[in-house]
Protein backbone atom coordinates (compact mmCIF):
# COMPACT_ATOMS: atom_id res chain seq x y z
CA UNK A 1 0.00 0.00 0.00
CA UNK A 2 2.68 2.41 0.94
CA UNK A 3 4.37 1.82 -2.41
CA UNK A 4 1.30 2.93 -4.35
CA UNK A 5 0.83 6.07 -2.37
CA UNK A 6 4.40 7.14 -2.95
CA UNK A 7 4.08 6.79 -6.70
CA UNK A 8 0.89 8.79 -6.80
CA UNK A 9 2.49 11.58 -4.95
CA UNK A 10 5.30 11.77 -7.50
CA UNK A 11 3.12 11.83 -10.64
CA UNK A 12 2.75 15.27 -12.14
CA UNK A 13 -0.75 16.69 -12.04
CA UNK A 14 -0.63 17.93 -15.68
CA UNK A 15 -2.36 16.05 -18.48
CA UNK A 16 0.07 14.82 -21.06
CA UNK A 17 -0.38 16.57 -24.40
CA UNK A 18 2.09 14.36 -26.19
CA UNK A 19 -0.65 12.52 -28.07
CA UNK A 20 -2.42 15.69 -29.15
CA UNK A 21 -0.46 16.00 -32.41
CA UNK A 22 -1.37 12.42 -33.24
CA UNK A 23 -5.05 13.09 -32.73
CA UNK A 24 -4.88 16.23 -34.85
CA UNK A 25 -2.96 14.37 -37.53
CA UNK A 26 -5.67 11.73 -37.64
CA UNK A 27 -8.27 14.40 -38.23
CA UNK A 28 -6.01 16.03 -40.78
CA UNK A 29 -5.61 12.83 -42.75
CA UNK A 30 -9.35 12.26 -42.66
CA UNK A 31 -10.01 15.62 -44.24
CA UNK A 32 -7.17 15.22 -46.71
CA UNK A 33 -8.71 12.00 -47.94
CA UNK A 34 -12.26 13.32 -48.01
CA UNK A 35 -11.42 16.58 -49.74
CA UNK A 36 -12.15 16.71 -53.43
CA UNK A 37 -10.55 19.78 -54.86
CA UNK A 38 -12.74 21.18 -57.58
CA UNK A 39 -10.88 20.09 -60.67
CA UNK A 40 -12.49 22.19 -63.34
CA UNK A 41 -12.94 25.89 -63.02
CA UNK A 42 -16.18 26.84 -64.62
CA UNK A 43 -16.06 29.01 -67.67
CA UNK A 44 -19.76 29.11 -68.37
CA UNK A 45 -22.46 30.59 -66.21
CA UNK A 46 -24.68 27.85 -64.81
CA UNK A 47 -27.63 28.19 -62.48
CA UNK A 48 -29.34 24.83 -62.42
CA UNK A 49 -33.15 24.76 -62.15
CA UNK A 50 -35.11 23.24 -59.30
CA UNK A 51 -36.78 19.85 -59.31
CA UNK A 52 -38.30 17.46 -56.82
CA UNK A 53 -37.59 13.99 -58.25
CA UNK A 54 -33.92 13.90 -57.44
CA UNK A 55 -31.46 11.04 -57.47
CA UNK A 56 -28.12 11.28 -55.75
CA UNK A 57 -25.04 10.57 -57.82
CA UNK A 58 -23.12 8.05 -55.79
CA UNK A 59 -19.72 7.22 -57.19
CA UNK A 60 -17.81 10.29 -58.23
CA UNK A 61 -15.29 8.37 -60.29
CA UNK A 62 -18.09 7.09 -62.52
CA UNK A 63 -19.49 10.51 -63.29
CA UNK A 64 -18.39 12.95 -65.93
CA UNK A 65 -19.64 16.47 -66.08
CA UNK A 66 -20.81 18.55 -69.00
CA UNK A 67 -21.68 22.17 -68.41
CA UNK A 68 -23.92 24.17 -70.68
CA UNK A 69 -24.47 27.87 -70.35
CA UNK A 70 -23.44 31.30 -71.50
CA UNK A 71 -19.70 31.97 -71.32
CA UNK A 72 -18.67 34.06 -68.35
CA UNK A 73 -17.90 37.73 -68.90
CA UNK A 74 -14.15 37.31 -69.14
CA UNK A 75 -14.56 34.66 -71.84
CA UNK A 76 -17.29 36.44 -73.77
CA UNK A 77 -14.76 38.09 -76.07
CA UNK A 78 -13.32 34.73 -77.13
CA UNK A 79 -16.46 32.61 -77.21
CA UNK A 80 -19.35 35.02 -77.71
CA UNK A 81 -22.46 35.29 -75.61
CA UNK A 82 -24.61 32.46 -76.92
CA UNK A 83 -24.72 29.25 -74.82
CA UNK A 84 -21.74 26.97 -75.15
CA UNK A 85 -20.65 23.58 -73.84
CA UNK A 86 -17.84 23.11 -71.39
CA UNK A 87 -16.06 19.76 -71.33
CA UNK A 88 -13.44 19.33 -68.65
CA UNK A 89 -11.87 22.72 -68.16
CA UNK A 90 -12.42 24.34 -71.52
CA UNK A 91 -15.26 25.48 -73.71
CA UNK A 92 -15.65 23.01 -76.55
CA UNK A 93 -17.75 21.98 -79.47
CA UNK A 94 -20.46 19.32 -79.65
CA UNK A 95 -18.25 17.18 -81.85
CA UNK A 96 -15.59 16.92 -79.12
CA UNK A 97 -17.95 14.95 -76.89
CA UNK A 98 -17.08 11.40 -78.07
CA UNK A 99 -13.40 12.03 -77.36
CA UNK A 100 -14.19 13.51 -73.97
CA UNK A 101 -16.35 10.51 -73.04
CA UNK A 102 -13.70 8.08 -74.28
CA UNK A 103 -11.02 9.80 -72.22
CA UNK A 104 -13.12 9.40 -69.11
CA UNK A 105 -14.12 5.86 -69.97
CA UNK A 106 -10.53 4.71 -70.33
CA UNK A 107 -9.85 5.66 -66.72
CA UNK A 108 -12.69 3.50 -65.40
CA UNK A 109 -12.28 -0.26 -64.83
CA UNK A 110 -13.99 -2.22 -67.58
CA UNK A 111 -16.53 -3.85 -65.27
CA UNK A 112 -17.92 -0.53 -64.10
CA UNK A 113 -18.14 1.10 -67.52
CA UNK A 114 -21.86 0.42 -68.08
CA UNK A 115 -22.61 2.40 -64.91
CA UNK A 116 -20.94 5.59 -66.13
CA UNK A 117 -23.26 8.55 -65.83
CA UNK A 118 -23.08 11.94 -67.41
CA UNK A 119 -24.09 14.80 -65.20
CA UNK A 120 -25.47 17.64 -67.27
CA UNK A 121 -25.25 20.93 -65.48
CA UNK A 122 -27.34 23.12 -67.67
CA UNK A 123 -28.36 26.69 -67.05
CA UNK A 124 -32.10 27.10 -66.68
CA UNK A 125 -32.31 29.76 -69.36
CA UNK A 126 -30.61 27.77 -72.08
CA UNK A 127 -32.88 26.78 -74.97
CA UNK A 128 -33.46 23.15 -75.84
CA UNK A 129 -31.76 23.41 -79.25
CA UNK A 130 -28.24 23.02 -77.94
CA UNK A 131 -29.42 20.36 -75.52
CA UNK A 132 -31.08 18.37 -78.30
CA UNK A 133 -27.81 18.34 -80.24
CA UNK A 134 -26.00 17.33 -77.08
CA UNK A 135 -28.42 14.50 -76.38
CA UNK A 136 -28.16 13.23 -79.93
CA UNK A 137 -24.39 13.19 -79.65
CA UNK A 138 -24.55 11.36 -76.31
CA UNK A 139 -26.89 8.76 -77.76
CA UNK A 140 -24.63 8.28 -80.76
CA UNK A 141 -21.69 7.72 -78.43
CA UNK A 142 -23.64 5.17 -76.41
CA UNK A 143 -23.70 7.25 -73.25
CA UNK A 144 -27.30 6.75 -72.22
CA UNK A 145 -27.35 7.34 -68.49
CA UNK A 146 -27.83 11.03 -68.04
CA UNK A 147 -28.48 13.07 -64.96
CA UNK A 148 -30.00 16.51 -65.31
CA UNK A 149 -28.41 18.25 -62.38
CA UNK A 150 -30.92 20.19 -60.30
CA UNK A 151 -31.39 21.73 -56.92
CA UNK A 152 -34.02 20.44 -54.52
CA UNK A 153 -37.26 22.32 -54.74
CA UNK A 154 -38.80 23.75 -51.61
CA UNK A 155 -42.38 22.55 -51.60
Amino acid sequence: MSKFQKKRGKASPEISTASLPDIIFMLLFFFMVVTVLRDASRQVEVIVPNASELTKLEKKSLVNHIYVGKPKKQFAAAYGTSPRIQLGDKISDIKDIPLFLEQHRSKVPEKQRPAIKTSLRVDGDVTMGILADLKTQLRKSGQLLVNYSAKPKAE
Binding site: L54, K60, V63, Q143, L145, V146, Y148, K151, P152
Partner: peptide, 8 residues
Protein backbone atom coordinates in the same frame (compact mmCIF):
# COMPACT_ATOMS: atom_id res chain seq x y z
CA UNK B 1 -24.56 16.18 -57.00
CA UNK B 2 -28.27 15.59 -57.33
CA UNK B 3 -30.47 15.57 -60.34
CA UNK B 4 -33.18 14.01 -62.43
CA UNK B 5 -31.87 10.70 -63.72
CA UNK B 6 -32.85 9.87 -67.27
CA UNK B 7 -32.07 6.93 -69.50
CA UNK B 8 -31.82 8.01 -73.11
Amino acid sequence: DKGVLVKL
